[in-house]
Structures are given as C-alpha cells and as structure tokens.
Design a protein around this nucleic acid. Structure first.
Lengths: 243, 243
DNA sequence: GAAATAGTGTCTATCAGACATTATGGC
DNA sequence: GCCATAATGTCTGATAGACACTATTTC
C-alpha cells in the first residue's frame, strides 16, 4: 500500500543524506577616502587563524528562517545596521575550499554609505580594506580572494546598467558625488554632461527642493533616489569598454 | 597553550553545527517547435509525489567534488549529454520551502540545442514543457514555479546583451535561425537588418565557408559561433522594453 | 574679479529601427 | 517567370562623447 504524504513525512529521516557544512559570507562594499573598500575580519579560530577573511559564518537553523535572513542577521551583527542594498552573489561549494572538508557558502554582497559605518572600532580585527583592481593587498582565507574578485566584477558590471551606486551614498547626495562614485568604481573618468543626462533622463532622481550642498565653488543641488523599489535600467552601458 | 592548525583540524567535529539539507536543481531550457521549453520530471516520491518538478537531487559528498560538478552529473543523468551552457542561477534556502524542514537548493540553468535531446522517452514522467510567460501551465512542487520564473527572467535578460542564444542551436546555424530563437524567447519580432548588423558587428560569428542551408527560398549562409570562451557583450540592449 | 565648482548647450559620430531593394534558390 | 526567403542598402531619429560655455558661490 502507498503511504500518504502525511505518513511519509512522519517517518522521514532527515539525516539520511550526508550534508555539507553550510555557511553564509558577506562582501560588504563602501566607498570612503575616494577608494572602494570591502569589510574584512581577522579570523579568531582555525582554520586560517589570524588571516583576513570575508565576514560570515554558519547558518543557525533555529533563528534563521532563510538564507537571506541569515545574511541580514550577520550584516547587522558585523556593522550594526541594515544595509540599504543586499543581493545574493553566488554559492561556492566544494570539497577543497575548506580544510575541514566539504563546505558550501552562499555569498551575499552589500552596499552601504560610508557615513553609516565607523572605521575605527577594533582596527586590529575588523578593517575596511581598499580594493585594488579586483582584490585587496592581503592574502585572504579559504577561497575568499576568488569570491571577492567575483563580487568586484559583479559590482562593476551592475554599475554599468543599473542605479545601484546610489546605495553607496547617504539619502541626500549631489550629482557630482554620484559621478565620483561611478568614477572610483569603474576606474575611469566620465563626462559630466553625459553622466547628468543619463541619470536625469533615467528619472531615478528627485531634486530636494531648495537644498544645496556647500563646497569651495558653486553649491550643488541635492537629490534623493526616487524609488528604491523601482528597477532603473540604462539601455546602454556607461562605458564603452567591452567586458 | 594554542593549538596549531593541524592539531585543531584533527579534533574538529564536523557535525558540530546543525546543517540544512542541500540539493542541486536544474532549469534546463531548449527551443523546440517554436517554443521555449523546460525539462520537468514527475516526482516519484513524497513530498509532492506525482507532481511535476525541476530535475535535481541531493549532493553526493562522495562523488561530487563541487556544487558545479554535482549539477553537471545530474545534467548527464537526466539528458545523457553535457550541456553546452551551464550557469549558476541562485540558491534558495529556507525553513518553509520543503515540508521536511530546512533545505537549501542551488539552482543551475542550462541551455541546449533541441536536436541533441529526445522528447519521446518516458513522456509520462519526463517532459519538455512549453514556457508560457514566466512559467508552465502545470503546478510545480516546492518553490519550483518561483525558481522557474527567476530562470526565465534571467534568460530573457541575458539574451538582451550577451550571445548565449547560440547555445540553443546546433554548432552550425543560420542567422534567420538565430533570430528566431531571440524572437521566441523575447516574445517580440525583431528587424532582420538590425539583428544581422548587431550579431555580425559583435564579431561573434564565423561563416562556414561554402555551406548553405536549404529551405523553400534562397538558402541561408551557415555560421558557427567563433569562440565559446569569449564573452560577447552588446553595448545596447536588443529590445527597447524597459525592465 | 579670480578661482573653483555646478550645470547647460551644441556639434558630431554611432547605431538601432524602419523599410525598400536586391540576390538566389526551387518550382 | 514566379514565389519564397536571404541578404543588403538607405534614411531617420535617438543618444553618447567631446567640449565649449554659462552660472553661482567663496575669497
């Protein structure tokens, strides 16, 4: 006789299959001091003790309802605030990537404004490392250098045709500030006029009436991002370089 | 006294953390009979017994060296050949998605030419279901309808600015055939002249000297994809529709 | 007014869309 | 020659890049 689904579930042994260890890691980007930076932590435990690594850790099946929840929880633990932008990057899983054996990690990447973070606390074990090319000038634990490179490529690529750069700035920002973010991450100067046309015509920004930001020259108009839910998509990529 | 890394690894208990069940699922696309189709299998076991689902299954820590290896193994098991294109889509993990409890699945999507597959074997339990909109006209097990929708969106999106459609055709194909693939998946007619300019100028194709394909009218020039490793990237998206 | 920075205007090259025209096969 | 389909040519509109120019602030 066939089992009903309810009967089947009562008898089902969850531990039937050997499972890999499962972790969630984070690539948290910000732009500070005219550099793209990524949050690194020094590992407190073996393996790779005292080496720099991406923040992350094991899933907690009791308190994490989903992988994304887990990523948000770890983000809050590490930097104390919810990131305005969190996106799943990729899952890396193999027998070799961790000396303890078969592991898989789902990596998320987050963007945040540098004014919402503090660089200072515990510089010895937590650091915002500048990104040079597609990595940092430190050796990273596990396959984290490879993961970081993938994240940098994804970030540059998404910058070309979406609005995600606004998440690297505070709520109110000027167009020159936004352009500088693009220039820093894409590592090339952009034409002011073309840049403005592009973002204004995309309709993604809203002037903050009357407010201006001071500097040494003419003050710049403040804008805010119009709709964090809407997906801006530029029909042409921002730089001509082939990828 | 501190443990060395070697000592630590000897004592390390891999089962310390409770792990979610981990599976790999596949969204395998092809174009056949002028329709985008996806491979579905009827589940033999509970849960969701006898419902249609994406092919997939548990990771085998013994024989799978990596998640990607596992996806390739399952692909070969299901359709008997290596797919010319396999890309990781996303990882879905939560407590709710499977009645047996906390599970995570890493989903890959594959493209293949319809001439390399057989539609006939075991129609009762394996089927190439036509994709309508962003799904199929069957209820799917687990969160597979949601996963399939994500895969269709990703496929359409990548078609706009990359060359991946060539993987849906046999090695030798004509430009009208390639254009038809785009039209079927993007669900809109494309201008012949613009389409040709686009793919020819991208430099991704190579004429197969002298070979022509017959039809009722003038025979079309055969082409093949120049370099399966190179990344073609169209600087503008192919259709004007905003996403 | 000079310096500095913000913002605008204009010209041009490029390319997609539209569509007409030519080419080449079968019958 | 006729039909069907492949392939090319041409015109136009949109827009990115380049760069000159104007605007508004501080000193």
């Amino acid at each position: 006789m066939e089992l009903t689904e309810a009967e089947f579930l009562r008898c089902y042994n969850v531990s039937l299959y050997e499972k890999p260890s499962f972790t969630v890691d984070l690539v948290i980007f910000t732009v500070r001091d005219e550099q793209l930076r990524v949050l690194l932590v020094k590992r407190a435990e073996h393996p790779f003790k005292d080496q720099w690594a991406l923040p992350g850790g094991f899933l907690d099946l009791q308190c994490d309802d989903s992988v994304e929840n887990c990523a948000m929880r770890k983000l809050v633990e590490k930097i104390g605030i919810r990131a305005p932008y969190l996106e799943q990057l990729k899952t890396y899983g193999s027998r070799e990537r961790d000396p303890r054996g078969w592991t898989a990690t789902t990596v998320y990447f987050a963007l945040m404004a540098s004014n919402s973070i503090s660089l200072e606390k515990d510089q010895e074990r937590v650091r915002w490392a500048p990104v040079q090319g597609e990595g940092v000038d430190k050796a990273l634990a596990f396959d984290h250098a490879h993961i970081l490179a993938d994240a940098v490529v994804r970030l540059r690529s998404k910058l070309e045709y979406t609005h995600i750069a606004v998440h690297l700035l505070p709520e109110a920002f000027t167009l020159p500030e936004l352009q500088q973010i693009y220039e820093i991450i894409l590592q090339q100067p952009l034409d002011k006029s073309s840049f403005r046309r592009r973002v204004v015509q995309a309709g993604m920004l809203e002037e903050i009436a009357g407010k201006l930001r001071d500097g040494s020259g003419r003050p710049a108009q403040l804008y805010r991002f119009r709709d964090y839910d809407r997906k801006t998509f530029f029909p042409r990529s921002i730089s001509r370089y082939a990828r």
